[in-house]
Amino acid sequence: MTPVLQTVRLTHRYSEGTPFERVAVDSVDFSAQRGEFIAVIGHTGSGKSTFIQHLNGLLKPSSGSVLFDGKDIHSSKEFTRQVRFRVGLLFQYPEYQLFEETVYRDIAFGPKNMKLKDDEVDERVREAAGFVGLGEEILGKSPFDLSGGQKRRVAIAGVIAMRPEVLILDEPTAGLDPGGREELMENILRYHDGGKRTVIYITHSMEDAARTAQRIVVFNHGHIAMDGTPREVFRRGFELIQMGIIVPQITRVMMRLRELGLDVDDSVYSVDQAIAALRETKGGGDRA
């Protein structure tokens, strides 16, 4: 099956040809199949944000290429533009991009740029607003009068209204309270719709990544350092810590147990898994 998104030896250098030149992404080969739910992690400056901005053609690679459905997204201007709509990208702190007089018009900005008919735009705006839980009464308000959490929802609705096949989010839950995070993650899962759409999201929270994603991609120094299921990634907990990534507390507990000589599976990332692993451990069953 052709991957929906694929990068081939993707390299990006900032400030090329100046003394400040810096390689942010270094010949990365990556592919995402339709319907995947992928979490991208890595510490600040690991190149993950730069990387995802290539996936909808916002940044042009210094070398290498990005393919959408097997076709180079920079093959023609028209195609790049199309890809922008088919791969929706939500930036960090997206509430700062709101600009319209009303919430309705702000959400409609994307669909209008797609040159859709007015009734189609209307339908999408209402659907997207409903999707993130914004009521009818909010649509007529100015986005600047809303609370931080509501603004974030408006911004997300603005991307969802384009109905992208691939939704990419850069730390969507940053700065939200626990309730808001929970709700947002639920929305994203609902958009994924059991694998009808593809979701790629950057997060700092290993807990979030472990809980929701089927696949975790770890960035370090502009390279993909690990790529696999949560368990495969967590099995290398020590390396993760060396890369400056904070692993879940329960994983650290298990790693420490292992260090102390207990032969326990430390690739766990939830308390339930930890209990199960401890039960499996030699002799653990009797004591539990």
Partner: peptide, 16 residues
């Protein structure tokens, strides 16, 4: 930096 960021965000929504 802010200009750069907002420009990218709007371009992602199809701004030209």
């Amino acid at each position: 930096e802010e200009t750069d960021k907002i420009m990218s965000a709007q371009r992602a929504r199809g701004a030209d």
